[in-house]
Each structure stands twice: as C-alpha cells, then as structure tokens.
Amino acid sequence: MSLNREDVVKIAHLARLAIDEQSVPEYARNLSSILDFVATMEQVDTHAIAPMAHPLDLAQRLRADAVTEEVDRETCQAIAPQVEAGLYLVPKVIE
C-alpha cells in the first residue's frame, strides 16, 4: 500500500497536523513502508474470527449517579494557554 503526496496531506489534515512541505515525501515513504509491513496481516483468513477490542472479557462496571468531583477551576486554568472570564479562548469559531 503506497501513499502519495495527496494521501499524506489528506491524512495530516484529518489528524490536524501541520507537516512541512519538504517533509511530505519522507512521510509518504515512511508511512508507505509501515503500511507495506502491516499488509502481512492480509495473509491470514480471518473470515470466521470475532474481533477482539479488549484483552479483558468483562462487562463495563457502573458508577452510582452521585456528584463526587469538586472543580478547582483556578488550578485547571493556570496551565491553559489563554483564558478570560473563566473561559478558554480560541480563534473565532465560524459556524
């Protein structure tokens, strides 16, 4: 499976990663070689195999519906890049 330049740009966009123009070919090469390697999976017929999402064959445990968390906004926002009036600021969102 070989990825071309457009593929890399598209994936990088989907993952919201800025990639230098000049490093795109290197990403294309590296990602293609990883995908080639991964393609060995195709050798096995998995038709009748149930997928395994998790190592534990267990069910989800449930939490009682109770308020247990105190929120320390000051501490949480001390590490935020930009806040004002208790809000996290981002460049204007256009809907």
């Binding site: 593929d7 890399v8 994936i11 990663l17 990602l31 999976m41 195709e42 149930a50 997928p51």
Partner: peptide, 30 residues
C-alpha cells in the same frame, strides 16, 4: 508521534477500517 497518529488516522478512516483496524482486531484474537 506524528507518524503513528497518521497511521492510526488512516487505519480508522472511512474505507480502510475493515482492512486495517477490524482485521487487526481479529488477528488479535488469534
């Protein structure tokens, strides 16, 4: 990290999920 994010993004993306992610989950069971 960027490489792995991109590989993972690709493996989950529409049209490739079955060939990569689902296939890998089945092999995981094997």
């Amino acid at each position: 990290v960027k490489r792995r994010i991109m590989i993972g993004t690709y493996a989950l993306s529409s049209g490739y999920y079955d060939a990569y992610y689902l296939k890998a989950q089945k092999l995981r069971r094997l």
